[in-house]
Amino acid sequence: MVQNIHHINFLVRELDKAVAEFAKLTNTKPIFEPLSSRGANSARFQLGDTWLVFVSPTDENGIIASILEEKGEGIFLISFGSDDLSKTLAGLTGNPRNSEMRKGLDNWYVQDISLDYEFGPILQLCETH
């Protein structure tokens, strides 16, 4: 079952500039992490129980660069926390976008999902370990 908004991803062209501005707003420091398998770098801030993740492409031919080219900067993914990904997926009428869950930042297990309605951002489920 979906329990909360685990994280929201913002796609940005200039990671350092975006992070500096957001750090001023929140008076916090981000955690920087590469997303090598996705051709990107990330920086994340925790606000309450929700992570805000800024993602910028490092590979102009990677998936993140293609999403940036298609959609532009801004919110591109909303991830909902689940205590059991398999059980939550089994209860959905929509089909997963990918055939397998993958390991994300900080040992998060994530699965993109498709629903019968297009919401704009990619929707995802996230289970932490």
Rank of each mutant, 00 (worst) to 15 (best):
Arg38His: 14
Thr26Gln: 06
Asp116Trp: 12
Leu125Trp: 00
Ile78Leu: 04
Met101Gly: 01
Glu69Val: 12
Gln46Leu: 10
Asp84Pro: 09
Ser99Asp: 13
Gly74Met: 01
Leu52His: 02
Ser114Phe: 06
Arg97Leu: 11
Phe45Cys: 02
Gln111Tyr: 02
Ile67Gly: 07
Ala43Tyr: 01
Thr88Arg: 05
Leu115Thr: 10
Ala65Cys: 05
Arg13Met: 05
Leu47Phe: 13
Glu14Leu: 06
Gly39Ile: 05
Phe80Leu: 09
Leu115Trp: 13
Ser82Met: 09
Ser42Val: 05
Ser42Glu: 00
Leu89Val: 12
Pro30Phe: 07
Asn9Met: 11
Val12Ala: 01
Glu69Ile: 05
Ile63Glu: 04
Lys87Phe: 08
Gly91Ser: 12
Asp16His: 10
Phe76Glu: 03
Phe80Trp: 13
Pro121Lys: 01
Lys24His: 03
Tyr109Cys: 11
Ile64Gln: 00
Ile78His: 09
Lys17Met: 09
Ile5Cys: 04
Phe32Pro: 02
Leu68Lys: 00
Thr50Arg: 00
Ile63Phe: 05
Ala65Gln: 03
Val53Ala: 06
Phe32Ala: 09
Arg102Glu: 11
Gln3Val: 04
Phe76Tyr: 13
His7Arg: 14
Ser79Asp: 05
Lys29Ala: 13
Ala18Cys: 06
Ile78Lys: 10
Met1Gln: 09
Gly39Ala: 10
Asn107Tyr: 05
Leu92Ala: 05
Gln3Met: 12
Ala18Lys: 04
Asp83Glu: 09
Val19Arg: 01
Asn95Asp: 15
Ile113Arg: 00
Asp16Trp: 08
Ser99Leu: 08
Pro121Cys: 03
Thr88Met: 10
Lys29Val: 10
Leu15Ile: 03
Gly39Leu: 04
Ala18Asp: 00
Asp84Lys: 12
Pro96Gly: 08
Asn41Ser: 15
Lys71Ser: 05
Ala43Asp: 00
Ser114Arg: 09
Glu118Leu: 09
Ile64Asp: 01
Ala43Gly: 06
Leu105Asn: 02
His129Ala: 15
Asp49Thr: 12
